[in-house]
Design a protein around this nucleic acid. Sequence first.
RNA 1: GGCCUGGUGGCGGAGUGGUUACGCAGCGGACUGCAAAUCCGUGUACCCGAGUUCGAAUCUCGGCCAGGCCUCCA
Length: 462
Amino acid sequence: MTLRLYDTLTRAKRDFVPVDPARVTMYVCGPTVYNYAHIGNARPVVVFDVVFRLLRRLYGEEHVLYAANVTDVDDKINLKAAQEGVPIGVITDRYLTAYHADMAKLGALRPTFEPRATQTMDAIIAMIERLIAAGAAYAAQGHVLFNTQTYADYGKLSGRSLDDMIAGARVEVAPYKQHPADFVLWKPSKENEPVWDSPFGPGRPGWHIECSAMIEQALGLPIDIHGGGNDLIFPHHENEMAQGVCADGHGTIYANYWLHNGFLNMGAQKMSKSLGNVQLVHDLVREAPPEALRWALLSSHYRQPLAWTDDVIAQAKSALDTLYGALNRAGDVEATAAEPSEAFLDALMDDLNTPKANAELFALAKRLETGSPAERALAKGQLLASGPLLGFLQGVPQAWFHGGADADLTARVDALIADRIAARAAKDWARADAIRGELTALNIEVMDSADGATWKLKEPAA
RNA sequence: GGCCUGGUGGCGGAGUGGUUACGCAGCGGACUGCAAAUCCGUGUACCCGAGUUCGAAUCUCGGCCAGGCCUCCA
């Protein structure tokens, strides 16, 4: 079974063949740190975290290099810094710290590298110089622009021609551009903006060149996988590819597989900071178990749009209740040491079919509930091996059900349950039910079993 | 205007030219002191029209609807 990935450039699912299996490389466009990340921002993080986990399994942990950049030079950062009257570093540090904390809660592993634009300035400038030397870029009025006319494949990734772009242009073309599609590599800084010296004059880099330079510096070209949200296909990735190919000189490949995730929507609209309909991860993780948020994010195929609703989160919680419930009831089953089940792996290998992989987790849970002793032992082992590949089922099952209950509440609940067990043993049903009523009032649901009782903390009634 | 996606049961969501997805919710039953959980069973689906085909929800064409990109954006 080989890994197959849908490649945006060729618009087809292709077998994944890394340039060097001992050094598999992936780059994903990361956050611009000027605010808290919203759940839409988290989708690619979680999706590519799954790719990362899968690649590590296939090629070995030490053979996979994953870089996700941090954009710390940006207009919005400048704006925020100006508003607060602090250096941009204060803003970027604050939100990068929060970003790391939020993504960790969603179970995302830290990338191997997290290059920052401010720390890549030499490489950015060097790359621009090479582009100029190659005739693919020109200076004009303090700017350096990429000359799209010199790159025949420009538009190939996003599937549009230069003519289309001119026809569809909705913005006024800057007078210093030789062609309307040419884009900025270096531009003068405005007053009070951060500024760097360069052979082209003082200024700051364009957004696209930052990524190309960071990729080259962190991973080297070409890379195996380049990922990001599908809104980045044009212009960002199109431009990245143009720069990378033209500056490279090694060949014509920039990234061998382009992966793009679909958008997360709020109702009919996309979630975006500019529309103001965002739900911050920072807030959501306090309202719902982070693992349920992760489940919700992976409950549809990564290339499909995902409508984010309360119901999606509730269904995700119920789904995890079922899986953790099966593990909880199988506490005494000795798990057979096992690999993830074949059906589970097959699903993921087929362009990351996480909904199908999730379905297999349910099949394993069913086997764990109903199988023969040997089947149950194997199913438990497979479930415990499979789940973590998606970042699930890594906690103690009891913790899932008791999550949110502090030590005080836990002690109180345990005492009440002990009383109730005694009452039931004495067939004092009235007292047993009264105690259950008390527990219900505490949002505790009791589940009796032959040898005692388990409980879970429910959501407070809305 | 140009380019590009997608339209599956009450909800979420895979997949396939002819066979149960799966989950959540519902219903019936078993179990239970009663519940819950679990188990067994069960109903509801493939936007519209035409075409190709022995057979299409799955392929083709047209239409309708929804969304995205073309400007910062995951």
